[in-house]
Simulated scan of single mutants.
Amino acid sequence: MIFDPAPIELPASYETVPTSGHIKISHHPAGAPSVTPVIVVTLNRPANNNAFTGQMVYDFEKFFPMFDVDERVKVIVLTGAGKIFCAGADLDIGFSSNRERPADHRDG
């Protein structure tokens, strides 16, 4: 089976695209009304040491294809809120999902 991605629609501002809240997307300078060449992606779970969740995976899958084809974006800065960048996977939540897709498996 060949994975056929949906067409990508680029937003006027990445700051207005909804996320799970586990990551925050901002422009540099912050609050710019339209897309800037520098996009800041912040892991936004400082109370959990920015431990990575399955919802973060879905957010990354939504945003990074947009960044890839958006000619306005030149640099993506990945950072973490608080004192710790990322503690790794959030083992308290886990990564189980009822939503399997052919694209999730390399060998289809």
Results as ranks from 00 to 15, higher is better:
L78M: 09
R106L: 14
K74G: 03
T79S: 11
I39W: 00
P102W: 01
T16Q: 10
A6D: 12
K24Q: 14
M1E: 14
V75W: 06
R106I: 06
A6H: 07
T16N: 06
V57M: 08
N50P: 03
S20W: 04
P37F: 01
I84P: 01
F52E: 01
V57S: 08
P46A: 12
F3Y: 10
D68C: 07
L43T: 05
G82P: 04
H22P: 00
R99P: 00
K83T: 11
D104Q: 14
N48W: 03
D92P: 00
N44R: 08
D104M: 13
A81T: 03
G94M: 03
I23F: 12
T79G: 00
T79V: 13
A103V: 14
I93K: 14
V17K: 05
L10C: 03
A12L: 05
D90P: 05
K62Q: 13
M1L: 12
I84K: 10
V75H: 14
E61N: 15
L78R: 05
S20C: 13
L91S: 01
M56A: 13
H28D: 12
V77A: 08
I93H: 04
P37L: 11
N48M: 13
G108W: 04
D59N: 06
P29R: 13
P37W: 01
L43Y: 15
I25W: 02
D90R: 04
A30T: 11
D90K: 02
E9I: 06
D68M: 04
E9H: 01
T19Q: 06
H22C: 07
A51I: 04
P65V: 13
D92I: 00
V41F: 12
P5Q: 01
A103Q: 14
R99Y: 06
F67Y: 15
A32R: 01
K62P: 03
G54Q: 08
F3V: 14
D107G: 01
A6F: 08
P33V: 00
R99K: 14
I2R: 11
F85A: 05
D104P: 04
K74V: 03
S97G: 10
F95M: 13
M66Q: 15
D92S: 12
A87I: 07
V35Q: 02
V77K: 14
F3S: 13
H105D: 14
I93G: 01
V41I: 10
S96Q: 04
P33C: 05
T16V: 07
M66G: 04
G88C: 05
S26V: 06
V75Y: 14
N98Q: 11
F95L: 11
T53S: 12
A6C: 01
K24F: 07
I25Q: 07
S13H: 01
V57A: 11
S26Y: 00
S96M: 07
F52P: 02
